[in-house]
């Protein structure tokens, strides 16, 4: 086993363990903090995949914005967090069964697929990932349309969130 593989196994184990704590913690503040740990683990996985830019975006957008938004929402609804009552609904066993079946199905399907043991080719020397990503995001031949649609979506979400959370009194 190479060092890279050992690092991957440790990071993946820690990420999955904190993911499990996100869905099982009674206290929602703890769940949101475990989500931060999970997101950080995923950022490390991006780094292992040589996608440094994605790791930075993960830390800035997910941990810096989304996780903080979750913590705010938990605090604003704090009176009704009900740490003491049941955290899982009465059909939780069906949810658990669905999750296990999904994982089993995906795992079985992936095992029969030929490309599984494929290893990555070296990234060519002098290949500038971030420049290439920026060029493709703004090039009319590539992905400028999804890029612009995403900005319209973000604007619509902002207006919608302000309207929904606005106190009319």
């Amino acid at each position: 086993m190479t060092t890279e593989q050992i690092i991957f196994l440790i990071v993946a184990g820690a990420t999955l363990a904190s993911g499990l704590l996100v869905v099982t913690s009674r206290n929602l503040i703890h769940a949101a903090l475990w989500l931060v740990a999970t997101l950080f683990g995923v950022a490390i996985v991006y780094t292992l995949l040589n996608a440094g830019f994605m790791a930075v975006v993960q830390v800035v957008v997910y941990i810096g914005a989304i996780a903080i938004l979750f913590i705010f929402a938990v605090m604003l609804t704090r009176k009704d967090m009900r740490d003491s009552g049941a955290q899982l609904n009465s059909n939780w066993w069906a949810g658990a069964l669905m999750a296990v079946l999904t994982f089993g199905g995906l795992f079985a399907m992936l095992r029969t697929w030929g490309g599984m043991s494929k290893t990555a080719a070296e990234i060519p020397a002098g290949f500038d990932q971030i420049a290439e990503l920026g060029a493709q995001l703004t090039s009319p031949e590539a992905y400028v349309l999804p890029f612009e649609v995403a900005s319209v979506l973000l604007l619509a979400a902002m207006v919608g969130a302000v309207y929904l959370a606005f106190n009319k009194k």
Partner: peptide
């Protein structure tokens, strides 16, 4: 796949909307 399944369990089984 494992992370997706954990998230699926959380989305299907938790009672709190934030969770």
């Amino acid at each position: 796949a494992a992370l997706f399944s954990i998230g699926l369990f959380g989305a299907l089984s938790r009672r709190n909307m934030v969770a």
